[in-house]
């Protein structure tokens, strides 16, 4: 397993796991979130092609109520 951080929490994923696989395993709808990997945006069209590496810092965000 490979250790990464998702939204500040440690998480272990299988080697070769992609962003798409991560979202799927978290039960998140890719159309409703945005993903940042090590402070760089991962565009939605690249979710399938982006494999995660050990130590990656992932942020997954969505829109919430705000003023």
């Amino acid at each position: 397993m490979v250790d990464i951080s998702v939204n500040g929490e440690p998480r272990a994923i299988p080697p070769g796991h992609t962003v798409a696989a991560l979202l799927n395993s978290l039960g998140l709808d890719p159309r409703k979130v945005a993903v940042e990997r090590n402070e760089a945006i991962v565009v939605r069209s690249q979710y399938d092609a982006t494999a995660l590496d050990a130590g990656d810092q992932i942020e997954i965000v969505h829109f919430i109520g705000g003023g």
């Binding site: 039960g27 965000v61 969505h62 705000g66 003023g67």
Partner: peptide, 16 residues
């Protein structure tokens, strides 16, 4: 709207 981390512990929380 604001942009915040998804709550990973409550995936079924309703979304805006």
């Amino acid at each position: 709207v604001a942009v915040r981390r998804v709550n990973l512990s409550d995936r079924n929380a309703p979304m805006l």
